[in-house]
């Protein structure tokens, strides 16, 4: 008997509520802040095989970010306080987007701001620019003093910024949520109602570390955001909860290192996953995750990744 090796179906749509949709060839996305503007990794890995790339958090003006040190390794995790250093939206449009326009892999721009007007101004400048496939609204950065997370911890403000941005752009809109809240479901439902096409979660969890030899905080900014394997069970739980409540795609993010980690998120209800901190240890981490997911599906005879989405949610 001839065994026919059928490539499992990996295509997903992150924005079914959008007129054009946001189709990815597979559900593995490089997370914002860990993958630069994409080309930094181009020489090391086949970035065109990724599901999507989400670029560095982008603000209206150039930002210098926080003082050194910005990074400290913790047990199974990483604390960072980069503080949204970035080149500003004008440079993204001028220098990065033309390059992205030639790529097969879709690039989503992560957008941050201090005020609603900031967010609107940034997305307005991205509107109609070739090479930009969608917006990830960052209302969850723990490392800036104003804006960012303030919008992500209050359901009314989260809804307000989401609808304001939705009105200002025709691009697919994903909203990235903060885990630093008491009720993640409430925020998720608020941004869904406000018109988000998708929700990504989680951003980093606020934390800190102290250098006992120096007797002072390890990070220049005192506190930072925790990422890496340490936060995966928290992220997974939040994805599980949110996926039960909303009817738009959920993108899981937080400590994905292996294919098994990614599959956990998919089975908890995520349509796709983001790989972040793992890129530092292994620049090809995202593609290793993708390859492992395909192997798993072949082994289990699963024809389409969409058959797995939320399968662990249906048990009860």
């Amino acid at each position: 008997m001839k065994v026919v090796d059928i490539k499992p179906g990996l295509r997903v749509n992150l924005a079914p509520g959008h007129i054009k949709g946001l189709y990815l060839s597979n559900p593995v996305i490089a997370a914002s802040g860990t993958f630069g503007y994409g080309m930094e990794y181009a020489e090391l890995v086949d970035i065109q095989s990724l599901g999507a790339i989400i670029c560095k958090g982008t603000t209206l003006n150039v930002r210098k970010g926080n003082p050194q040190p910005r990074i400290v390794e913790t047990d199974c995790g990483l604390l960072n306080s980069v503080g949204l250093e970035n080149i500003g939206v004008d440079a993204v449009v001028r220098e990065k987007a033309p390059m992205w326009a030639d790529w097969r892999v879709p690039v989503i721009v992560n957008v941050s701001g201090e005020t609603i007007d900031d967010y609107i101004a940034v997305v307005s400048k991205l509107e109609g620019v070739p090479g930009i496939s969608g917006i990830e609204l960052n209302i969850s950065c723990p490392n800036v003093s104003r804006g960012g997370i303030e919008f992500g911890i209050n359901p009314e403000l989260a809804a307000e910024v989401t609808s304001a941005v939705k009105a200002a752009t025709d691009l697919p809109l994903m909203v990235k949520l903060s885990p630093n809240v008491s009720d993640i479901g409430e925020i998720a439902m608020a941004v869904e109602k406000a018109g988000a096409h998708a929700i990504s979660l989680i951003n980093t969890i606020r934390g800190m570390s102290i250098d006992v030899n120096k007797g002072r905080p390890s990070l220049g900014n005192v506190t930072g955001g925790l990422s890496g394997s340490a936060i995966r069970p928290i992220a997974l739980y939040m994805v599980y909860e949110v996926a039960k409540l909303v009817h738009i795609p959920v993108v899981g993010c937080g400590g994905v290192v292996t294919a098994s980690d990614a599959l956990e998120f998919i089975m908890a209800g995520a349509t796709a996953v983001q790989v972040g901190t793992a890129n530092f240890a292994d620049p090809s981490a995202s593609l290793v995750v993708l390859g492992g997911m395909e192997d798993f599906m072949r082994k289990k005879g699963i024809k389409n990744i969409t058959d797995l989405i939320g399968c662990a949610n249906q048990v009860s």
Partner: peptide, 9 residues
């Protein structure tokens, strides 16, 4: 973090 200019750490 990354060593290749991507993370701004």
């Amino acid at each position: 973090g990354c060593g290749i200019g991507a993370c701004y750490g």
